[in-house]
Design a protein around this nucleic acid. Structure first.
Lengths: 192, 192
DNA sequence: ATTCCCGAGTAGACACTGTCTACGACGGCT
DNA sequence: AGCCGTCGTAGACAGTGTCTACTCGGGAAT
């Protein structure tokens, strides 16, 4: 009847999401998750045959969370694509920096290559949204190429910023100038 | 007298570099490195008090390797900065994609945050070279900001490309168009 | 109503990991 | 000769992921 009691499967993922956001990615031990869910260390195996599949389920939670935030920011019809892209970039960086553990988990090589995550399918709508916005903002260029480079730019800023390399480089403690630099570079200088 | 016999310390790092390039980052077990170096699992502790410090030493080898490649590409005086930046970007992407394990190791959060790696100091010359080149190519902008964004862009392309997200996005199996898109975006369209 | 059975979780074993500590060789001093 | 410090060994310990045998409880079928 109550919500969190709906099956051990969901509870394990809930615990994992909490754990990665509070303690970091190295705390996502199979046994620790089981412990916090109040079951024995063998229990998760019935739902997730391997540790990687449990981690993938947790990471997928983060992907859909991020996708939700982006969707609600860019939801309203055909607004100014440049503004929407700014909001999208801001949302992405904000998510990555306030959920560092989850962001790190979402892009781990072993998860991505295991195939359990299905990031290719999960993140494709976000990418095609980006392609659409870029295509509307700059009809004169190869939208897929520019969108790809812009996505990589956002991702790189999030990554380098989160461990401090870029803050030392740019001096300031604010990532917004970097975001605007990246946007200006790919979309042309902000027209007013 | 012979080269590889110069101390266990160097031999451990040698073994680690080989291992990460052939088997990947998950093979860099303390005990496995010791095994391949022909010593017991307790031996590394005399030179590297913890596993992370050994990994940091291996990663530092990769950083200096990359710095060397970049330095020899951009060594000749004051050539065309745009061409030098193109060569630098190509070298960076090439290194990241042909040494995937090493590249992944070099940018692991736990290594960076442990402080043992010293990436801040190690990679600073590379970044200031980038700032210099960007400043010469575009005297009209904040060079540090653009260089930071460009570095993040290169890093992001390397990362996203290496696990296939971008190849699916751009269709082609070649990363050079993406590299030129990023360079054009930050430096302005190639003059001529 | 009794039997059967199957899904869900437990408990213990196994090989492996990183860290710690006590111990043994070996070589260069005085 | 005796000593001592450096280097490496060997074993213990807690913790990990995976595997397998088992127990328990509640329907379904006869």
């Amino acid at each position: 009847m109550s919500d969190p009691e709906t099956g051990l499967r969901a509870r394990l993922v809930d615990v994992g999401v909490d754990l990665v956001n509070t303690e970091g990615v190295q705390a996502l031990t199979l046994r620790e998750i089981a412990r916090r869910a109040g079951v024995s260390h063998g229990a998760p195996r019935r739902y997730f045959p391997t540790h990687l599949e449990l981690l993938s389920a947790i990471a997928r939670r983060g992907v859909t969370d991020l996708a939700g935030r982006v969707a609600e920011l860019t939801g309203d019809g055909a607004a100014n694509p440049r503004e929407q892209l700014t909001a999208l970039g801001h949302a992405y960086l904000d998510f990555a920096l306030t959920h560092r553990g989850m962001h790190e988990l979402m892009f781990r090589h072993d998860l991505l290559e295991s195939g359990h995550l299905g990031l290719r399918e999960t993140s494709l709508p976000l990418f095609s949204l980006l392609v659409d916005l870029v295509g509307r903002a700059r009809p004169d260029v190869d939208a897929a190429l520019v969108a790809g480079s812009l996505l990589a730019n956002l991702h790189g800023i999030a990554q380098l910023w989160s461990w401090g390399s870029l803050q030392l480089a740019t001096g300031s403690g604010d990532f917004v100038p970097l975001l605007h630099t990246a946007l200006d570079a790919h979309l042309g200088p902000a027209n007013r």
